[in-house]
Design a protein around this nucleic acid. Structure first.
Length: 276
DNA sequence: AGTGTATCCTGCAGGC
DNA sequence: TGCCTGCAGGATACAC
């Protein structure tokens, strides 16, 4: 679910509530979201102070005072919800997986209905290695059209699959991949190496534009996504193709098509995004 | 290298 | 109302 704009929105919304907080007790209610033993996870976090909240790709990253990090991948339905005190029944998260209790009585709950998300405590080196295996940040100033083009040249996989591969580009998921391809006028099943220089330039611009605008709108809520304050994102009504199969293209009125490949739905306008 | 398939889970919408 | 199928912002592992 959450892609880069949602992770960014959550990270921003979390800062006020958790930076400076010192971790006390940690409750692991659903050990399967961890990638390490719950015992070790709990004990190694106790007493750590949260110094910063950031994001890498689709991950929300909490930097701790010993340079280790808590990396949260939100999966499809993950949420990070801060509370200044234990919430009463009605306000309680429905699927809590991990509860971080702070020394001042506040808490941060990782809530995840489907539990495809993960929470990991990594050393500085462990996180650096992980991050190094991920592709560039599409919104970083240094990420240019040339870099995108050179990455595309070497691959024959469909461009939509290429965009979803976190080792190639970090943070783009199915919604924004489809939206960016629409804006660039590129068919989702075009082989990456067949995206020409001009189209790659358009795609570079549209990826950055879509991600930036989605961040401004606080992300996209289809169903489950909520920010750190429990609010929905407002980008859903601005989607051009995602989830709009059969509806008229906003640009040319042709019906939007849905095709499935790589185990995911892809949406495109057959007229605005011709196959090359 | 690529693609198709299955897996991990839960919940919701739509058809009958 | 109830049952069934298909679908979902992700990621990975496998066989071919």
């Amino acid at each position: 679910m959450p892609e880069l704009p949602e992770a960014e929105t959550i990270a921003r919304g979390l800062r006020r509530a958790v930076v400076g907080q010192v971790v006390g007790r940690v409750d692991v209610l659903r050990p399967d979201v961890l990638r390490q033993g719950a015992r070790h996870f709990r004990t190694s976090l106790r007493g750590r102070r949260i110094d910063r909240v950031g994001r890498r790709g689709k991950n929300v990253v909490l930097d701790l005072d010993d340079r280790s990090v808590i990396a949260v991948n939100l999966g499809m339905t993950g949420r990070l919800l801060p509370f200044s005190r234990s919430p009463r029944r009605a306000a309680r998260p429905t699927h809590p997986a991990v509860r971080f209790r702070f020394e001042d009585g506040g808490l941060l709950v990782f809530d995840d209905t489907r539990r495809f998300g993960t929470v990991e405590h990594l050393s500085a080196e462990g996180w650096a290695e992980r991050s190094a295996r991920m592709g560039p940040e599409p919104l970083a100033p240094g990420f240019g059209a040339r870099q995108l083009l050179s990455g595309l040249r070497a691959s024959r996989t469909p461009i939509r699959s290429w965009l979803l591969d976190q080792r190639r580009l970090a943070g783009v998921g199915n919604i924004y991949a489809n939206e960016a391809l629409f804006l660039a006028g590129v068919h989702p099943q075009t082989r990456a190496c067949d995206v020409g220089t001009a189209a790659a330039g358009r795609l570079h611009r549209s990826i950055r534009r879509v991600l930036r605008e989605a961040i401004e709108a606080g992300g996209t809520t289809i169903r489950d996504y909520r920010d750190a304050g429990g609010e929905e994102g407002r980008y859903a009504r601005r989607l051009h193709v995602y989830g709009r199969a059969g509806q008229p293209c906003v640009r040319c009125r042709s019906p939007i098509r849905r095709v499935v490949f790589g185990n995911r739905s892809a949406f495109h306008c057959p007229r605005c995004q011709p196959r090359s």
